[in-house]
Computed example of a mutant assay.
Amino acid sequence: MRLSTVILPIYRWAEGQKVWRRAEDLGFHAAYTYDHLSWRSFRDGPWFGSIPTLTAAASATEQLRLGTLVTSPNFRHPVTLAKELITLDDVSGGRLTLGIGAGGTGFDATAMGQKAWSPQERAERFGEFVPLLDELLTNDATTREGTYYSAVEARNIPGCVQTPRVPFYVAATGPRGLKLAARYGQGWVTYGDPKGPADVPVEQAPGVVAQQIEKLAAACEAAGRDVGELAKVLLQGSTAEKPLQSVDAFVDWAGTYRELGITELVIHWPVPDSIFANDLDTFERIATEGLAQLS
Rank of each mutant, 00 (worst) to 15 (best):
A210R: 15
T61A: 11
A31P: 09
E15D: 08
A57P: 07
I51D: 03
A60R: 05
E214G: 08
A217F: 08
W117N: 02
G16C: 00
G224K: 07
S150R: 07
G185R: 13
S38D: 15
Y11E: 02
A60E: 14
T143I: 11
W13K: 02
P78I: 04
G93Q: 04
A60P: 02
K242C: 13
L3T: 08
T143L: 05
T138I: 07
E84K: 00
V19Q: 09
V266D: 15
V91F: 13
Q204R: 13
I10V: 12
S38P: 05
A287W: 05
T97D: 11
P52W: 03
L64W: 03
P52H: 03
S72K: 05
K215W: 12
V152Y: 14
A31F: 03
T173C: 07
A60K: 06
L88Y: 11
G106E: 14
P52G: 05
T87Q: 12
E214I: 06
R76M: 03
F48E: 00
T147I: 09
R2C: 01
P78A: 01
R95S: 09
A14K: 06
D252C: 01
A111Y: 09
T105M: 10
D248T: 09
E84D: 10
F250V: 06
T173G: 12
W13S: 04
G255R: 14
V209M: 09
H29S: 09
V166L: 14
T263W: 07
T143C: 09
D134K: 02
I86F: 13
A198P: 00
T71P: 02
L81S: 08
A172N: 13
R43H: 15
G49V: 01
Q212T: 14
D89Y: 04
A249Q: 10
V227A: 15
R225T: 14
T263K: 07
G224T: 04
L137V: 04
L244P: 14
I275S: 10
H77Q: 03
R225D: 15
G16P: 03
E153H: 13
G207P: 06
H268E: 12
S59V: 01
A254I: 08
V79C: 09
T138P: 07
K18G: 02
G99R: 00
V251L: 09
K232T: 08
N74K: 00
L235P: 12
A30E: 03
A205D: 12
